[in-house]
Nucleic acid binder design. Structure first.
Lengths: 193, 193
DNA sequence: CGTCTATTTGAATGTACTCAAAAGCGGTGG
DNA sequence: CCACCGCTTTTGAGTACATTCAAATAGACG
């Protein structure tokens, strides 16, 4: 297993000694997803936290009219999962699937609990991850309230320039909360400027 | 100081013995806000976590066109503040002010750090608070993406029936992300049904 | 090559906003 | 106590933003 990226990710928040690192690594599992494979489906219980080492995932819902709404994308160096379902071990509302062939490192709930017990620093680590996610969401809510679709699109490509390259317009529009048709029109309008 | 409500709030997540309770209470301060008083202004640093024992606050931003966008309301038994600013001790983007005469219990950053040190259980408590807030935000993002203004309004009054009574339509519209004029039209339409 | 899905384009429609004016409502001071 | 002021809510007309439906084009993949 290639653990370089995940250990680096963790070291940005907490410092581990060799023993702690080894113990942590012993609790991990690798999983490979092909494009369109599901990591999680609505109604299932989210049993792992997942760190992406390669590829791209999306977390989304499907509404009553069968439209998909993307809550977040995840790519290399990101953690994904449904926190609520994971913590409460109750059924999730979300789907998570792969937009590209993807490689993730997983830690199960049971192993994470063991980890917290043996290396309490990790409590802090996951709290920090959660805080960052919380703040990102707060900004997104604020943007949704303040901005037109055009401004949100410009904000998105500014914030995630590399990600936008990898995504189809359909995915981007499902994240922005507009139709693919309208995104296409926006892009034409912007390119003429 | 009337600490009954806050101790009850905490006991829903963690159990404290008498010594721990007393220590916790010794770190708290009460503050009174009159209607329209500010608890926090954009550019300031959020130096306390705040628990509301009476009244109603709103957390909001003001955009380039001077429109207010409400990120959350807070009322009795809620925690409010800007987590990001509080944790990083950096300037906030938000305003928090009182919609009614309000009474809050505050704990400063320094005291909270002491508390975490002496009663580590509280780390867990604040992680749980954060998790709940995270989940609430995720639902809100999802609703904003999936629903029309009318559906969002109906969802709001269903979720917070008691709160809606206390708020002006202007405040509700700033939360829903629509104009007061449009909310008025929605209400008329709904009442005719 | 053929099939399936994504993107583009156009026309018609619906949703929500702006501007403006009037009515309602609460508080304050004379 | 009531007259006035400021703010909220209502109402209407016109406009802008975003969607739906439909059809054509372009790309991706087996």
């Amino acid at each position: 297993m290639d653990t370089e990226l995940i250990l680096q990710n963790i070291s940005r928040h907490i410092q581990l000694d060799k023993t702690e690192e080894d113990y942590f690594v012993s609790l991990l599992q690798t999983k490979y997803l092909k494009r369109k494979d599901f990591l999680l489906k609505q109604g299932n219980i989210c049993r792992t936290e997942n760190f992406i080492t390669k590829g791209c995932l999306r977390t989304y819902t499907i509404d009553d009219n069968d439209f998909e709404h993307i809550v977040m994308f995840g790519t290399e160096d990101w953690w994904v999962g449904d926190l609520f379902s994971f913590i409460t071990q109750s059924p999730t509302d979300f789907f998570i699937d792969a937009l590209e062939d993807t490689e993730i490192i997983q830690i199960s709930k049971a192993n994470l609990d063991r980890l917290f017990d043996r290396v309490p620093k990790f409590e802090r680590f996951f709290r920090l991850i959660l805080q960052n996610a919380f703040i990102a969401q707060q900004n997104r809510i604020n943007q949704n309230l303040s901005c037109t679709a055009e401004q949100r699109y410009l904000g998105f490509i500014k914030k995630y320039p590399q990600l936008e390259q990898r995504l189809s317009q359909k995915q981007v529009s499902a994240y922005l909360g507009i139709t693919p048709v309208f995104l296409s029109m926006l892009r034409r309008k912007l390119s003429r400027k």
